[in-house]
Nucleic acid binder design. Structure first.
Lengths: 340, 340
DNA sequence: ACTTGGCACTCCGTCCGTGCGAGTGCCAGT
DNA sequence: ACTGGCACTCGCACGGACGGAGTGCCAAGT
């Protein structure tokens, strides 16, 4: 019935007004700023119902209403239209990201770009190692019993490890080892590289076997460790913008969580590249984030997500705009990394 | 005369009390907490002189006194004894830093360690490229006209760049190129690598010359750019501790400056490894840092500083303790990087 | 020449009471 | 089912009073 529909319209209006003004919104103001075609009194009745259903609440008796987490959720799921980016924003994305020289640079620019577009804290995850493929393995001898192994992935990520060798390395063994490793692992996804190790050990010439074993062990160790997946954080200055009213308590736990990385990374791990994921307030389950919202999405080519990126901000944020920005940036980064 | 000496003693007491309590300190409280052997009235006279000389000031008429930047400066220069680290802290340093797997890891641990020890924001600069020496150069072909060049320094830093080649690369040229570059640059400090290029171009076999030129150009570009010197920041959550009274205005500009990096890096560039450098409040010259103090020192082996590290916090900080922590951590990191 | 106790003064922070405005809930009327 | 009216409730901003902490100065003591 037209009844329920108007009520949703009222909720949408409450969210929009509260997001833009940061003041609890009352029935009179609503009637003025939106043409809902009804009087403030009617709106009051609707708001009473919305409050009973848990979508909005009032900070004190007789102040305006404020959306609850549940209210934002409904807004995001059913009431928000996709907000197209302005041409200026599209241009900003290109201008910002073109001319990046390496992976580190790309992700650094990305995080700054996202922070600037959304005026929130931005987070970008490095491409997950286990989903990347080996482009090249490099072996360098740095001392008689020590090798430096450098792994370069198809996404441009570079990892290096020092490997202690059981015995001295014979001269000439290093190039041999390099060729062997590359022919075994090149193009292999890191998540599946472990399967190759036994076969490689069998076919390797005996005098290299211990070397191969040592190097493989170190590599596997590097990869199995998903906590090593790095996170780039930017725009933390935006936290200090909202006059500290935006976050309950202080913003301290939030800053701590961002530095921990592990909390955010866990949330990131659930993204996929096709849909923008929004987590609102308490939905985050983690204490420090219970007053914040996350908008995340995976980036990468269509068939595989390389990693996640997104923003974290107060629950009172411009969801449609931020969702659009996050998605657009992820698409662009995906292309950029795919073609390099 | 004993006169001046006691006045300095009063200044020291003011600084110490204010740092620990965060309240303007009055004559009576001073007389109680320190045995200066004189009455509050005498202390008042001394404080009046100290105020006239600009070392302390009162927030309002008839509140206690607070040290000025100049007062902290005198305290740091002449009144602070070296505070030895506790055994627990020494152990924490070792425990924290041992077991780091690569450079990124070392610096990440360092910054967390410093932030935890000092309860301030910690910053660590990556080893300056121009002062590092080439350990190895790796060349990989990633497409017909594109090479990936990976530079590994003796400090473990890894930089990579994609080089677009003027023409197709003949098969077999890549290993040749690799050998050539390595024999020319291995062990050379990057700051001086530019001098080697002309000679290298002359002696290079003709068919490699254009390749060498392209690769060298990219390398020089990478190195000349000192702004690429990265900074690791940690412990920003500590900013939110001091109840926002510690920083005039908000802490927003401070967070921005930390993200900019360039401001902090410029200050870092002046460090050397032997002395701890303290910059207090307005001494920083940069607007955003005018309410903050920096404690920095270079790390590296005795003969060359690889980079800087330090902390930034409110002018009201425990200078002796923080100076000791910064120095101890820098020494440990220096050893760690020297032996790897 | 310094130090000390006393004293009057200044000013900040807090508390309390008031008035105002915004917003609500309810009710009667259309 | 909607609307206008009305009484009611709070939060907040304003303003004056109060208490306390701390100072500066002065006269007296060592």
């Amino acid at each position: 019935m037209a009844h329920d529909e108007r009520r949703l319209e009222v909720l949408r209006a409450v969210v929009q007004d509260f997001v833009s003004t940061n003041d609890p919104v009352g029935s009179k103001a609503l009637a003025e700023r939106h043409d809902l075609g009804v009087s403030p009194a009617t709106i009051r009745n609707d708001m009473a119902v919305l409050e009973e259903q848990g979508y909005i609440t009032q900070p004190h008796t007789s102040a305006g209403r404020v959306p609850t987490d549940k209210g934002y959720r409904l807004f995001v799921d059913r009431l928000s239209a996709v907000k197209p980016l302005s041409p200026a924003e599209r241009r900003a994305i290109e201008r910002f990201l073109d001319g990046a020289v390496d992976l580190h640079d790309v992700l650094g620019r990305t995080v700054r770009l996202l922070a600037q577009l959304t005026r929130q804290v931005a987070v970008v995850q490095y491409p997950t190692l286990s989903r990347s493929a080996v482009r090249h393995l490099e072996v360098v001898q740095v001392a008689s019993g020590r090798l430096l192994v450098v792994l370069i992935t198809d996404t441009g990520r570079v990892e290096q490890r020092v490997v202690e060798c059981p015995a001295d390395v014979e001269p000439g063994a290093v190039p041999e080892l390099r060729t062997l490793l590359n022919s075994a692992f090149a193009g292999v996804k890191l998540g599946e590289a472990g399967d190759k190790v036994p076969g490689l050990l069998e076919t390797a010439p005996p005098h290299l076997r211990s070397l191969v074993a040592a190097v493989s062990a170190t590599l596997m160790e590097t990869l199995v460790e998903p906590s090593e997946d790095r996170l780039v954080v930017g725009g933390t200055a935006n936290l200090a913008r909202g006059s500290a009213m935006d976050f309950p308590g202080t913003m301290r736990p939030l800053l701590e969580a961002l530095e921990e990385q592990v909390v955010v990374l866990r949330l990131m791990s659930e993204v996929d590249a096709s849909t923008v994921l929004v987590r609102i307030g308490e939905e985050n389950a983690h204490e420090a984030l219970s007053g914040a919202s996350l908008v995340t999405v995976g980036y990468g080519s269509a068939d595989r997500a390389l990693g996640g990126l997104g923003i974290v901000g107060p629950t009172r944020m411009d969801y449609p705009g931020n969702m659009a920005a996050v998605r657009a940036v992820a698409r662009y980064v995906g292309h950029l990394l795919a073609e390099s």
